[in-house]
Design a protein around this nucleic acid. Structure first.
Lengths: 169, 169
DNA sequence: CTCGTCATGTAAAGTGTTACATGATTGT
DNA sequence: ACAATCATGTAACACTTTACATGACGAG
C-alpha cells in the first residue's frame, strides 16, 4: 500500500523521503498515515525492484536523496490504481469493540460512544475543510465523480458505513 | 486486537480455537476477520501471559483444546473494553486510492466507483440483515445505545464516513 | 545558543497473511 | 469412496509501529 502511495507521490516531481512524508500528511493523510520507519524501507524496496532511481543532491553538508519514478514504476502504479477498490471488510478495528459493549456498564458505554461521536464530528470537520479547499481547484472536472459528500450520502447511504451490531446467543 | 477479541469470546464459555474462529465469523466478523495463522499463536501468547488456561478434551482420537479465561484475562479484557474508542484515522486503505483518481481515465474511474458503490450496497445489506436478527433479541436494552443506524446517520452524519477528497497542487 | 525543522536511517517488537502439513469425522 | 468440515499447528514472508541514533540548518 505505502509503496503504491509513494509511487503516486512521485508521478509529477522527484522528491526526498522527507518530502513524501510531508505530502502524505498534507494530502492523502486523512486516509493513510505513514511513519519514517515504514517509508524509508519502502523506498529502498521500490528502488531495488527498479521502480525508482535515486539521485543524491546534498545541500551543503546535508544529505538529500531525490527519488525518481521509472517507466516500470509508472506501470506498476497504474496497475494498482486500475485494480478494483475493495471495500474495507476485514479489520475495522475501532468498531470491533462495540461488539462487546453489552458487557460494559451503561455509563461507560454511553461515555465512550459520546466520545466517539465527538471524534467523528471532528473528523467530519476536517473532511469538510478539505472539501472546501477542493471546490476552489481549477481542475474540478478531474474530480467530479468523487463528489460523494454528505448530501449524496443522504440519498445513497451505500457510501457511508452504518453501524449495527448483533451477537447471537 | 485479536487477543482482546479472543478473550471476549471466552467470557461466557470455554471454546476451542476452531470454535472461536467460527464465533468471530458469525458475529464480530463484519468488523474483524481472523485467520488460524494469527488466532492459534494469539491463544498461545494469551496462555503464556496467564490470561487463559487450557484443557485438553480429545473426542475419540480427535485433538481438542478448550481455552478458559482466567481472572487476569477478564481484567485485561475489561481494561481494553473500557479504553476509549479511537476513530480510524490512519490506514483507511480502500479510500487511499481515490486520492489519485485524477490520474485515471474517467471511464475506468466511473466503473470503479460504481463497483465500489455496489460493494457498499452489499455490505449495507449484510449489516441490515444483522440488524434484523438484532431487533429480535430479548436483551435489547443492553444494546440500545448502539442503535446508530442509517436513520440516525441521516440526522447525525458524524457516525458515517463522508468521502471527500482534495489534492493540493 | 538553543529550539524547531530538515533529513536519513536502523532495531526490536508486534501483528498479520498465505501456504503448507497433518489427520479425524461426518454426510452422501 | 469422496468431499466437506472439524481441528491444530508451523514457516516464510510482509508490513508496520515505536523508539532510538545521528547530525545539519535557520531563526530568534
Amino acid at each position: 500500500m505505502l509503496e503504491s502511495i509513494a509511487l503516486g507521490m512521485l508521478l509529477e516531481n522527484d522528491l526526498t523521503g522527507y518530502d513524501i512524508k510531508k505530502f502524505i500528511e498534507n494530502g492523502i493523510g486523512v486516509f493513510y498515515k505513514a511513519s519514517f520507519g515504514s517509508l524509508y524501507p519502502a523506498l529502498k524496496r521500490l528502488t531495488e525492484k527498479g521502480y525508482l532511481t535515486t539521485r543524491d543532491k546534498p545541500q551543503g553538508s546535508r544529505k538529500k536523496i531525490f527519488y525518481h519514478i521509472t517507466e516500470e514504476g509508472r506501470k506498476q502504479f497504474f496497475h494498482w490504481l486500475s485494480s478494483p477498490m475493495d471495500i474495507f471488510e476485514g479489520t475495522n478495528t475501532h468498531l470491533a469493540k462495540v461488539y462487546f459493549f453489552d458487557h460494559l456498564e451503561a455509563e461507560i458505554r454511553s461515555q465512550q460512544l459520546l466520545e466517539y461521536e465527538i471524534n467523528n464530528r471532528n473528523y467530519l470537520k476536517k473532511l469538510r475543510e478539505l472539501e472546501k479547499g477542493f471546490t476552489e481547484l481549477d481542475n474540478k472536472e478531474c474530480f467530479s465523480p468523487l463528489f460523494i459528500t454528505e448530501s449524496a450520502l443522504r440519498r445513497k447511504p451505500s457510501a457511508g458505513v452504518v453501524i449495527s451490531v448483533c451477537r447471537n446467543r
